[in-house]
Design a protein around this nucleic acid. Sequence first.
DNA 1: TATGAATGAGTTTTCATTCAT
DNA 2: AATGAATGAAAACTCATTCAT
Lengths: 221, 221, 221, 221
Amino acid sequence: MIHTVNPTTKKRALAVLGPRDEAKAVFRRAILRAAADVFVEQGFHAARIQDIAERARIGVGTVYNHFEQKEDVLQALLEEHTAALAERFTAHAAGLDFATDLERRLSRMLAYKDEHRAFFVLVMEYGLMGPSTGAAAMVLKGRKVRTDGLKKVGVALFADAQKRGELRADFDAEHLLRILGGIIRAFAADTIAEGATFASRTAEIVDVFLGGAQARKKKKT
Amino acid sequence: MIHTVNPTTKKRALAVLGPRDEAKAVFRRAILRAAADVFVEQGFHAARIQDIAERARIGVGTVYNHFEQKEDVLQALLEEHTAALAERFTAHAAGLDFATDLERRLSRMLAYKDEHRAFFVLVMEYGLMGPSTGAAAMVLKGRKVRTDGLKKVGVALFADAQKRGELRADFDAEHLLRILGGIIRAFAADTIAEGATFASRTAEIVDVFLGGAQARKKKKT
Amino acid sequence: MIHTVNPTTKKRALAVLGPRDEAKAVFRRAILRAAADVFVEQGFHAARIQDIAERARIGVGTVYNHFEQKEDVLQALLEEHTAALAERFTAHAAGLDFATDLERRLSRMLAYKDEHRAFFVLVMEYGLMGPSTGAAAMVLKGRKVRTDGLKKVGVALFADAQKRGELRADFDAEHLLRILGGIIRAFAADTIAEGATFASRTAEIVDVFLGGAQARKKKKT
Amino acid sequence: MIHTVNPTTKKRALAVLGPRDEAKAVFRRAILRAAADVFVEQGFHAARIQDIAERARIGVGTVYNHFEQKEDVLQALLEEHTAALAERFTAHAAGLDFATDLERRLSRMLAYKDEHRAFFVLVMEYGLMGPSTGAAAMVLKGRKVRTDGLKKVGVALFADAQKRGELRADFDAEHLLRILGGIIRAFAADTIAEGATFASRTAEIVDVFLGGAQARKKKKT
DNA sequence: TATGAATGAGTTTTCATTCAT
DNA sequence: AATGAATGAAAACTCATTCAT
């Protein structure tokens, strides 16, 4: 769990892969990993480039060899992870009912979040689908963080479920997606506090999302 | 909607109430109002004390006569509004079923948020019940923002509903409260985007919270 | 030893003396006393007008009713005390030999310093006979602190002693005066550290001073 | 006498010595030299970091790369020069009588002061052997300026002279050291005013000092 | 005349960014 | 390409001074 580029790693990377480009990628990844941690611990503004560099065990200048500005680091972070999430969310098996399908997709996605806690916290702040607060928007200075992938897949999935009568149709798909997001967020506090894995709570999340908080009187006989 | 202390206002205030203390309160309020706007527009870190002062049409030094540090302004903002919210949420009429009761309380609360949009956005960032992100916690530097009031009332209300079998009992009350919060948050985007009032959506919020997103096949008998 | 203007003091002062002017003088004196303490404890620059006002138990504005600028407070402080010192140093009885004469004058002067420790420390910094360091001069912004009185008397006394062959004549009187000053300063550390009175060390000071400065004509015989 | 780091100097320094560390030392020295001048001209408090940076022809930030706070600059200044002085004062030849010995040591020390006028003035304010005034102590915020070296050597020298009957024994060595300091200080005004060298007055200083402090055994013959 | 809150110029300090090595 | 010291613009915060009461 040491987010570092040490000489050994570096040399190996140089040897194994296409010499130049791969070495570059190693540094880039190290920076992003370190940045995620530091942004989470201190917040974007309070995080100093130097902190990131130190955490990655590289020099400040190196960060600037890979990213033009501090903001670009955050943007890259959000985009790359969101892309990964979208991928997890997209893959599916055919012939499942909506609830099961959603649960599988979510489960993969949340597992990814479990592996990347720092990133997940960032997402809660900067939004999976575009900055949620004015402040977040300000930080990104109008950059368009390309997170369309996830949103597109999600909206399509939900719209389809609505057509099939598995999701209420009185809200639009995007809104429902946001509601799911809000519920996931609510589970985050629990999960983080307990040190539990996120993925393990997928069923509960889907249950609340689909069925609500009301006591289930009608469970049948 | 001009958050300002102008000479006229000042004199009037001085004349009407006890001269000194009241004048003081006028400035304090002007600062908090201006700060809410500026924090929302720029985010806490990007907001400069001077921006707040300019918006309130007062001098920078004056801000420091009322608050020791920038953080204290945010803290005061959160505390005072949260207290107001708690008050709205607390008042209730007896003999209502849970759904109606919750709807009334929420409705009052959301009306308050409609009147104080800026504050509401802040709450989404810094949390009604303690900072939700590490960054937010960092900003507040370990200050304990006293927002217990609202949480206490909410937890009591929900726990009671659980006992009476109106809310599912497999989650604890605090968690359910957070889920409601997440859903409200999800409605915020819609609402803000459309310029609609928040309060007008109370019924929908309660409906989703209690009944979930699933299509209502069982509507009839 | 409470450097304060309390209501009682104030009223009494008003009654006893010419109403207006005397009341004014009471405040002025309170300010100077408080200022001496504060300047000593914190140094001129670090001392805030508010500190002085608080120590004198008056409002900040009041200080400005009596002195135009912070620097004027220091100047007045130095001038008034120096005048008092000059007075003590000037008075003399006829027919004494130089050593005895000097000892009497010094003794009176040092007794005054014992009563006004704070002032004395200031003098060590700002000089009895004009600012000794560039920094001190800077603080006083080119003001001429009128401390001529003491210097004039001292030079005259020493020049006379030189003529009468009681002080070495190879240095000019003013230089000798400065040497005496340096020696007094050296005794200050001892005295202050021990909490002893300054006056009690007059004999030693004169002894050290004259032992070197005295003309050595009488060695023989 | 231009206390500056200009590009040329910088490159040369980098070429000649170990690149990094030496460049660092060059800047550090430039800062200290500039600071000495500025502190003397304006006094510590009135001196702005920017003044120091400008005098050294470097950026403000650079000062902070070398010293955490303004106070640290002063402390370093005092410590480094005091160490140099102690060195000059310490070296001695055997077999000299006390007066000659003292004269030689002082002469070397005062020559150093002649080369570093600015520093000397600072010493008059902040004391060679610990801050002499409360204000000075305040400036240094309780930092212990390590000036023991000089004091230790001086006290040892004087104590020894007392044992050998060359200095009066009714005062302790440290006090005698302070008296010498006071006398030197008195000569400073003369010297500085006239633009003369300090070293040239060593004999006079020792003469005045010993004339008083010397045990009076040899009066007869 | 005393008072103390308002004011804003001025200062320290931080930190993103550059650039010589 | 990596590095880290230099840089200076920018921001928090202080405090002498003013002025309405």
